[in-house]
Nucleic acid binder design. Structure first.
Lengths: 212, 212
DNA sequence: CTACACTTAGAACGTAAGTTCTATGCGAGG
DNA sequence: CCTCGCATAGAACTTACGTTCTAAGTGTAG
């Protein structure tokens, strides 16, 4: 792929990118003509051929809008994940309707690289409130990707619903003889103990995303 | 957006999704007709109208291939970021060709939500080796998103190239009277000091992504 | 049964859009 | 000067493609 591009080529490539971004499908030769102030469709065709030769795009001849951007401009495997709310990683925090945690209700969605999920399905995202998981490298404001599961291994980082307190919290879960220990990953905080019947596992952390 | 879909509609939607995935642009009415074994273009048109009414897609009338998938099927704002290698967040680690850090050489690319970048350009990704940044909630194996910059504010988390040692490392940078302090975010590790001429800022951390 | 909403069908129409042809201007090299 | 590669121009050709029209086959409710 060539690095230097004439300003004309550059403009055409940028126009195509913007057009797809905005409309969801590629432009026609004449769209490009107008968008880049080119006087003739043959000139556009000429440059498109050049751009294809240089590897910047792929053309399907005789097909309307038959072009696809290659390279970094092309799209990779992404998965849409609903960002459905907040979760307390400190003191358990009452949640309005925990059952509103439904995949379909996600107005906000977050797209993450598919490789981050490793093929898992039923994944949703929550924004973390609080600092109880800092030792697990999860801080206030981070977004955690959760897999919707009902069971957990000892030591898994899970979102649990405490029926008695009507609240949800993010903790590491350990089963003990007659109770469940919910341990924050923060050396300054004490674990919470609850009756097995009182805790309901909502999901397990499978990823973390953070922006500065 | 309706939840239940007739098998015909389902098939059409799936076909459109796959078609775009594979070719980079949407199908024509007749592509759909053939792909879904429908006998007439008018039937396709009929169902497309219905799907648009139900909010599954958007059509631009009179425009060839003028359709765009909406909802989770549609693509959110994503940015392609080249994942161009590893970076030591422990002891400085010699890198084969640090100048190969070129945006074009990224064979591997990672797509991240645009909101994570907040409009920044010239962003690339590196996988972190070592534990020196654990106090900043960045652990071994995490992927950091780097913005390509040449200068940094005091306290910024940056990738620096140490000319003398021919190595790259991830640290917080502080300017001092006659030297530069490179401080790991790990209380058990000591800072590194270097001459201002010896350090070259390669980039600044703008995000973190982690998979379990 | 009729009535109605939903779906399927085939054919035709008009134009959007990819392509091709020919001609011209410009700069570098011989 | 001429030639050659690169870029620009305008117009015409041919087809792909969205749309529309008409007709008929379902199933369900009254």
């Amino acid at each position: 792929m060539k690095l230097e591009l004439s300003s004309r080529r550059r403009a055409i490539l940028d126009f195509i990118r913007d057009f797809i971004e905005e409309r969801g499908y590629p432009p026609t030769v004449r769209d490009i003509q107008n968008g880049c102030h080119i006087s003739s469709t043959s000139v556009v065709d000429y440059h498109l051929r050049a751009l294809e030769r240089e590897g910047h795009l792929r053309r399907d001849l005789k097909v309307s809008r038959g072009l696809e951007l290659l390279g970094v401009a092309g799209r990779a495997n992404m998965v849409a994940v609903p960002l459905i709310g907040h979760i307390a990683a400190g003191e358990p925090m009452p949640v309005p309707q925990p059952d509103a945690w439904d995949v379909v209700s996600g107005a906000d969605t977050l797209e993450v690289p598919a490789e981050l999920l490793r093929g898992r399905s039923e994944v949703y995202a929550l924004r973390v409130k609080g600092d109880s998981m800092v030792d697990a490298l999860i801080g206030d404001g981070d977004v955690v990707l959760m897999q919707q599961v009902n069971q957990a291994e000892d030591g898994d980082m899970v979102a649990v619903w405490l029926k008695g307190e009507r609240s949800v919290t993010l903790k590491r879960l350990y089963r003990e003889a007659d109770r469940v220990r919910l341990e924050p990953a923060n050396s300054t905080m004490a674990p919470i103990y609850a009756a097995p019947d009182d805790v309901e596992v909502q999901g397990r952390v499978v990823g973390v995303v953070r922006a500065y």
